[in-house]
Each structure stands twice: as C-alpha cells, then as structure tokens.
C-alpha cells in the first residue's frame, strides 16, 4: 500500500506540474503534428500507399516527439537539487521511476488521442484489418517507448550534451519495439497479415524492459 501511495504522490506532483505549465504536451503535440505534415509533403502518398507507410510515420513521429518530452522529464528535478533530495529519501527509487513512466505514458497517450484522428484525416485511413486491435497496440507501443526512454533520460541526465545523448542510446535499443509497433500497425491497416505475433512480442518487450529498468534504476540514481 505504501509503495502505491509513494508512486501516486510522485505521479500527482508530475501531473500537477504538467497541468500548470503544459510544456511537455504542447511541445510534443506540435512537434508530432509537424512531422506528420512534413512526411505528407515528402512522400505525397496515395490512399493505398499511405496505408502501407502511415504505421511507420505514426510511430516515428511519436518516437521523435516523446524524445523531446523525455529530455525534460528529469531536468526539472535538477533545479534546487531536488534529485539529490530524492536520492536521500527513504522511499524506494523504483517508485520514483514508475511514477515518471506513468506520467510520460499519460502524456504520450494524450498526444495519440489528438494525433490519431488527424492521422485518419490527413492520410485518408481506413483499417482493413481489425481496427480495434489498435487499442492494444497503441498503449503497448507507448509503454515500450516511455519505459526505456525514461530510464535512458535518467541515465544521460548528468552527462555532457544530454539532449543529444538520449536519442543516441534510446534508438538502437528500441529497434525491436519500433519494428513490432510498425509491423502490427501496418498489418492492422492493410489487413494482409496477422498482427498477433507482433503484439505478443511488444507485450514481451514491455515486460522484460520494465522489469530490467525497475531493477537497475537505483543503480542509475545513485551513480556518482
């Protein structure tokens, strides 16, 4: 019970901060919107082509957008030595990590709620496969992005050019997740293949890396 309450305290603080400033959401939203528009200009897709490529565009846009927000998520803890206070606090470090993951998950999900309809409009999409499966793919994919993203943002927090470093270490590790997200989304949109394998893989990826991050986060937080 106490663990849940600690997570909730962290999460409520992050949500309140975001509610007042709306930095992360505004930045991510406009950024991903720009990526969608830019890709549309770059490829000028017809309806059949857009069904093939829009899965990839959606996830690449979300990946880039989430990096901009993830860079901010820990920086705000640096001011007034808040992070040092967190490190000294007796509460488990993984609770802090979990709450940050949940907060980022909520932010990116909100982006998807806005971006999804825009995508359908701009790319004239209509799922030929089972469209409701997207309700499974979107949260699982988002979780895969933000779990590793939040962890690597904390890892690169005290490095030189950390804004640069985060994508450099996040993207290579995220390749299997990105592959699974894009393949399952394309399979759902085109209806040509079964997305089941990729959704299961995405779930497995989430479980493995969430466990790993929760186990190793204390090491990262305490690294001197």
């Amino acid at each position: 019970m106490t663990y849940v309450r600690i997570v909730w305290a962290h999460l409520a603080k992050d949500l309140r901060l975001e509610w007042r400033s709306k930095d992360a959401i505004n930045g991510m939203l406009f950024f991903s919107l720009l990526v969608v528009v830019l890709f549309s200009f770059a490829f000028d897709p017809t309806m059949a082509v857009s069904r093939q490529i829009s899965g990839g565009i959606l996830w690449v846009a979300l990946l880039f957008a989430s990096v901009t927000a993830l860079n901010q998520t820990w920086t705000r803890e640096l001011r007034h030595q808040v992070l040092d206070a967190q490190r000294m606090a007796p509460s488990p470090a993984s609770a802090l990590f979990l709450s940050k993951v949940l907060a980022n998950f909520l932010f990116v999900s909100m982006i998807q709620i806005v971006l999804g309809p825009l995508f359908i409009v701009f790319y004239n999409l209509r799922a030929i496969g089972q469209g409701w499966l997207m309700l499974l793919v979107l949260p699982l994919g988002t979780l895969a992005l933000v779990v590793n993203g939040t962890f690597f943002a904390a890892l690169s927090l005290r490095t030189r050019n950390r804004e640069m470093l985060l994508p450099l270490i996040l993207f290579p590790v995220s390749v299997p997740a990105l592959l699974a997200m894009v393949q399952s989304t394309t399979a759902i949109l085109t209806g040509e293949s079964d997305p089941g394998l990729w959704i299961r893989m995405l779930g497995g990826y989430d479980v493995i890396f969430l466990t790993l991050c929760l186990l190793l986060f204390e090491t990262i937080l305490g690294a001197e």
Partner: peptide
C-alpha cells in the same frame, strides 16, 4: 552508443 556514452559522461 555504448562508447559514445562513455565519452559523454565524466567522473566516476
């Protein structure tokens, strides 16, 4: 990326 991380970080 491993070697880049080593290069970008400082100290212990």
């Amino acid at each position: 990326s491993y070697l880049l991380l080593r290069r970008f970080t400082a100290g212990g």
